[in-house]
Computed example of a mutant assay.
Amino acid sequence: MNNTSLKIPVFIPLIIGIIAISFSSIFVKWSDAPVSVQGMYRLLFTLIMMLPFVWKQARYLKQINWRETFLLILSGAFLALHFLFWMGSLKLTTVASSTILLSLQPVFVMIGAYIAFREKTSKAAIIGMMVAILGAIMIGWGDIGISAKHIQGDLLSILGTIVVAAHMLIGQKLLKTFPATLYSFTVFLVAVIVFGIYNLTLNIPMTGYPEKEWGIFLLLAIIPTVFGHVLFNWLLKYVTAATISMAILGEPVGATLLAYLFLGESLTLSQWSGGAIVLAGLYYFLQNTRKQNKRTTPAPIKPPLTSGPIVKKG
């Protein structure tokens, strides 16, 4: 990483990215279209914008084997499920509850990395994980007092977090030998196909929506996807992955503030307390994970097909 080659202070694009991804929940709430349609067009419009940057890399697809092809399809399917579950949760619970629970993603990634790769973590990081989970329980407990619908939304958000963790773990493995931009394009394409099949199977209309909805689909692609996740991917050329990971702590804060301003959503004392505990636990967890990574010497890996930043999803 070479911070000096960046012409502007790192915190400027980082803040832009945090604000951009915070708007994702607001756009989903504003839309009356089914979440499967929102997710499909969000990624489809992103694919169209990415096309000029990836078509020259298409030749690398001829070099992948059947196992890698299967993993790419699986990663794309998990990404589609993530959008279905998480965007669906926003229709049932508050933006704050959904995004705070989604921010538990590093915890599930750590658990999955231990199961799949036997990657170990420090006791301090485990303590942070447990604190964050305690906060998540407090959020759910607070939602019990509101309605059963809110609890269903919390569960959907947790399911969305689990599947996106699986998606990230597959990406971690594939990106050792796969161009990052082409990887993103491929899994987005698979996710769009999965959404299309889902909508056709359930007879969910994919056309005939008013102009307002098409505007929201486009906003979802441009703001939280391009100016959020794609911007974070670009920043990985200049800062560490741990720095980008810390940005997830900013999303629930930004999304909650925007939900208060644009949607009039408010939180109970239990939810505020649980949210604060989740963020504190995650901060402690990520800080100790970063310290452990600094002490660990990475094993040699096969050279990638071409250079590119490692992709982070959410």
Rank of each mutant, 00 (worst) to 15 (best):
V164F: 11
A165N: 04
A166W: 12
H167F: 14
H167W: 09
M168A: 13
K173A: 15
L175E: 08
L175M: 14
L175G: 09
K176D: 13
T177M: 02
F178I: 06
P179C: 07
A180K: 03
Y183F: 15
T186V: 12
V187R: 03
F188S: 11
I193H: 08
I193P: 05
V194L: 06
F195K: 02
F195Q: 00
I197C: 08
T201S: 13
L202Y: 14
L202C: 00
L202M: 12
N203L: 10
M206I: 14
M206Y: 01
T207C: 04
G208N: 07
G208F: 10
G208W: 07
E211S: 15
K212T: 13
E213K: 07
G215C: 00
F217L: 06
F217I: 02
L220S: 04
A221E: 01
I222V: 14
I222M: 09
I223W: 04
P224D: 05
F227H: 06
H229I: 07
H229W: 06
H229G: 02
V230G: 00
F232C: 00
F232I: 06
N233C: 11
L235V: 02
L236R: 15
K237R: 15
Y238D: 04
T240C: 06
A241T: 12
T243F: 07
T243Q: 10
I244E: 02
I244V: 14
S245W: 07
I248C: 00
G250W: 03
G250V: 10
E251I: 07
E251P: 08
E251Q: 14
E251N: 05
V253D: 05
G254T: 03
G254D: 07
A255T: 00
T256W: 02
L258I: 09
L258S: 07
A259T: 08
A259D: 08
E265Y: 11
E265Q: 15
S266V: 14
T268F: 01
